[in-house]
Design a protein around this nucleic acid. Sequence first.
DNA 1: AACAACAACCTGTCATACAGGTTTCGAGGG
DNA 2: CCCTCGAAACCTGTATGACAGGTTGTTGTT
Lengths: 239, 239
Amino acid sequence: MQEQTDPPDGPSPGLVSTAIQAITQHIRSEGLAPGDPLPSEAAMTRRLNVSRTVVREAFRSLSAMRLIDLSAGRRATVAKLDTGAMSMVIEHGITTQQISVQQVYDVRRTIEMRTVALAALRRTDMEAAAIAQSARLMRENFKNPEAVMEHDIAFHEAIAAASHNPVFSLIVTAFSGVTRRTWVIGWRTRSSDQAQLKMIKGHEDIADAILRGEPRLAAEHMAEHFDKSVKALLDAGIA
Amino acid sequence: MQEQTDPPDGPSPGLVSTAIQAITQHIRSEGLAPGDPLPSEAAMTRRLNVSRTVVREAFRSLSAMRLIDLSAGRRATVAKLDTGAMSMVIEHGITTQQISVQQVYDVRRTIEMRTVALAALRRTDMEAAAIAQSARLMRENFKNPEAVMEHDIAFHEAIAAASHNPVFSLIVTAFSGVTRRTWVIGWRTRSSDQAQLKMIKGHEDIADAILRGEPRLAAEHMAEHFDKSVKALLDAGIA
DNA sequence: AACAACAACCTGTCATACAGGTTTCGAGGG
DNA sequence: CCCTCGAAACCTGTATGACAGGTTGTTGTT
């Protein structure tokens, strides 16, 4: 009743890492899909011949990366694609000053120039409507910066979703946390109502170009939007 | 000796999540940099007024995302930026069929069109040499597919590094795992030596354009390279 | 057949114990 | 006085046992 991964392999990188690998391997080899249940901790404990402590830490680690979902009483299940882990990596980079906000914006610009073009080509009518609605809500709430920000973020995430490439969604969403921390700074540099409404108009132009299915135009508006945003951040002294 | 996060906030999302937040919060508020030590498990246990089990699982989770480094006997330290977590998310998406290989290549193309242009503008001489050397090693080992693949991956990572934006490096490196699983398929479709050498020539052209500091040209070669790679994968039946 | 109580199982958290690695600091020798 | 060696203190890795509370399936009653 004890064979498998005890003498042959696991000692150097630690038992927990081994367990993590065993679990991901299990998902792979069984071809599990999101929502499918994983073996219980007790079962894994027997299979790997380690203590429940080790198995628990492995499960917990995978849960932290959002590869599996845990909840009390129920078995762990395979998770749907989620940004959790990526967001934390990016935020860690920012808070430890290994990444600058400007660098994040450069990446966002690169990616969103593509998502906006893809969205213009592939958006469904519902997606186009959702994008347009986010822009509209920005205008309607424009006296409430926090609301504008949330609709702004939703706007960009909706465009990424309309690109029909989940990897783009993943990355764009991962950056939303950074946006939440810096957005206000950019907004403040647009001191007048006029400047703020102009920024909102830029979003509406993008939404319109997507609705009309014009990728080139949409990308141009997006480029302009980013250039102004970055300039605003630079003016505010963000490195 | 017991106050802080016991009655007021932490119960609903679980103690471990609370502990994770407390640790990241600690890094933030203390302004810790990579390499700096974190409090010991015992200290955290006292501060949060929870069992060591909970603190350990929190540390372990952060370690799984590569936000901190753990090693036996030593205190945990803040980690340098690392791709670990991102890679696992991407691979999880692939193995659970929530992401297709082609979608990853589309994102890679988008990003590397930019990194190659940035590399042409910002590369140091050493970086240009490293890129060129990877291309050269591809040619020298071209009878050994596995070696060619590793140098190919190193080539793209070196370009990302030369873009001087760590976020690009992070993403490109995160995709390397996927490349390792699909690269051979593309190589096999280039059945003749001539086709294989032509593909290597493409890399040399990119390296040359970067060396000469011509972003436009470099991007063109990169686009060509990706279009052919995607075509090769499609011909091989990769969805 | 519907429903309610129960039993079996599962995860969340705690306490304790010990092995093995790392750091620190002091004693002893040069 | 400095260098070296070794022991003590501290730290993490892993195992074990225990119990609370949630979930699920089963059984027995109405």
